[in-house]
Design a protein around this nucleic acid. Structure first.
Lengths: 354, 354
DNA sequence: CTGAAAGCGCTTACAG
DNA sequence: CTGAAAGCGCTTACAG
């Protein structure tokens, strides 16, 4: 732009500290606010010459639309909400959420939208937050993660008619009005079991997250099916994600008379914690115990041996989520897509031929 | 509340799907919108009896203020902005930002405020984001982290007169109008050096973050002073935070004819990466190389040996930042406070007596 | 193609 | 104590 806002153009300059409005532009150009609005939004009803002058003046004044005024008159906020529920102790270490948030934010930014974030410790705060956001017209839609068994949020968004997208369901959770980005974990779980079976493991355990997470139970089924298919004796346990619980669950497993020789952990953090604590657990990884994580992250490469893991596409998920939800908002019809399958990344924690 | 919104009260009920406004309340109670607003905001000018009826009706209808309308008429958004600048590869693993964000969000939530988050890869995008936020009246104030040498953001917030608080400066960065939550790293760096000196180390290196971060250079000075005080020969190096760079910098250090026997790393992630990769580096920790991190996090407890670190108070920092910035916004005067000093947490990565 | 006006949902001086 | 009205900064039917 070649306007520099020199002093003699002061007629149109807003006083210092005051942010310019379309009224300032209208006055400077000598048209109505309506005309300015039309020009700025690229709508017909304004001559090309006037439009050009309006745009130039807007730029010269450094005008940007007031988000509040726009939200009020368009009755749309340009904001998408995400509630993150995790114990504080986990939030910092588990890479998942920060990566998801970063991806979402980049995608939204590219659209001129914004992310509204809430962090809760307890799941029962989540409904209230969504209610408030919606009643206060703070968000146009929300992203739901980590679907639970009988997830109360699904009823809630249906009741309030909040446009929402669910990340990580199977599609069986589909409700009218709900968009979904589904994850089919079967191939992932199956390839983990196959990998271990090929290495000679005949007794494999799975340590799952809390059973209230829908995917925990679902993956259990895939795991059992995979074990059956490969002639592997399975063992199952659930645990919270916190380090102490994970280690305790692992100890219990290893205390059996005939313990498993490999464990498939729900998360990267679980697996890395166990590999890091192998000595305290009295096992060598992978010789005594092979370890696989159903989620990958740099944590898997921090410990030694590095952790064999199933790599997903969290970063891309942000873009996919926003694309689907935007389409949902635009058309009023829920959208559906599936995440690409996870791929097995073999590392030292299983690199032991038997 | 004992109102259940039964059918015969339908006069005041908004149609399904429409969210109630103060006009609905006014109509139901039989007063003006102005009176409703006064009652709802606890301002005088409304009889106690009327106020009670208004509040009850508001609750029965499930009314909540429209954030956009409020923002527009109060010309305040109730939103605080934070721009996070980190390479994508780091954002997931480094616990710092997620913990800061979580703390900030909890503190804001308690105030009925919200956090607006932006994620950028490159520092030069930051100014534009702040400009947009401010021009669009999206935020009432912003939080600045990781001050840089000659930080352009400080001029920017001064120029635009954005209320802002800087986390992690020393106070020498103070500008008129800027609130600060300062960190005095001297005791932390000093105690790290003292700890190593007491263990018998006579040649200690510091691997710092990139020199454009103000604290990197500042801590260098503290480090050199500490070494001098304790009769320790110092070595200094700068590196990016990414794993490859950290390992390369460490290798270079170890390749010297007379390499240091201990390294103080800028961050938890740097130190954990090195401890995890000790075998590849050809050293045993702590026997050949003692390792200290100037920042603590669960990553320090993930690797073996665990990493000796200086524990700060990120979680509490969120509350402090919001308290200071709110006071700044309320009074119009910048506020200043200091973070509590970091404390040395001794773990296995230095537990080697010489 | 252009102008004048009402509306989005609040807040707040200003009269009665 | 109460009411009627203007204003926050946009958008958008509706007349000319």
């Amino acid at each position: 732009m070649w306007y520099t806002g020199s002093a003699h153009e002061g007629v149109a300059m807003a006083e210092a500290g005051r942010r310019p409005t379309i009224a300032d532009i209208a006055r400077a150009v000598g048209v109505t606010k309506g005309a300015v609005s039309f020009a700025l939004n690229g709508r017909p009803g304004v001559s090309e010459e006037t439009r050009a002058r309006i745009l130039a003046t807007a730029e010269r004044l450094g005008w940007r639309p007031s988000s509040a005024a726009r939200a009020l008159s368009r009755s749309t906020s340009g904001v998408i909400g995400l509630v993150v529920t995790r114990p504080a102790a986990l939030l910092g270490v588990e890479p998942f959420y920060m990566r998801l948030i970063a991806g979402l934010e980049r995608a939204l930014q590219a659209n001129g939208q914004a992310l509204l974030l809430a962090v809760t410790k307890q799941f029962d705060e989540v409904a209230d937050i969504h209610r408030s956001w919606w009643a206060e017209r703070r968000v146009d839609g929300v992203i739901l993660t980590d679907p639970r068994v009988d997830d109360p949020r699904l009823d809630l968004v249906a009741e309030l008619a909040i446009p929402a997208i669910l990340l990580g369901g199977t599609g069986s959770h589909e409700r009218p009005g709900l968009s979904t980005l589904t994850a089919d974990d079967e191939p992932a779980v199956s390839s983990a079991v196959r990998h271990l079976a090929r290495l000679g493991h005949r007794h494999v355990a799975r340590i799952a997250g809390p059973p209230e997470f829908a995917h925990a139970t679902r993956r259990n089924a895939h795991f059992l099916a995979g074990c059956e298919r490969h002639g592997v004796r399975p063992a199952l346990a659930h645990t919270r994600f916190l380090a102490d619980h994970v280690l305790a669950a692992t100890r219990r497993l290893l205390a059996h008379a005939d313990p498993p020789t490999a464990v498939v952990y729900e998360s990267d953090l679980m697996a890395a914690t166990v590999v890091g604590s192998a000595a305290e657990l009295g096992v060598r990884v992978p010789d005594d115990l092979a370890v696989v994580a159903l989620e990958d992250s740099p944590l898997c490469e921090l410990v030694r041996p590095r952790v064999t893991a199933l790599r997903g596409t969290i970063d891309a998920a942000g873009w996919q989520l926003i694309a689907l939800l935007d389409e949902h908002l635009r058309t009023g019809t829920p959208q559906h897509a599936a995440l690409p399958p996870r791929r097995l990344v073999v590392r030292g924690s299983t690199r032991c031929d038997r």
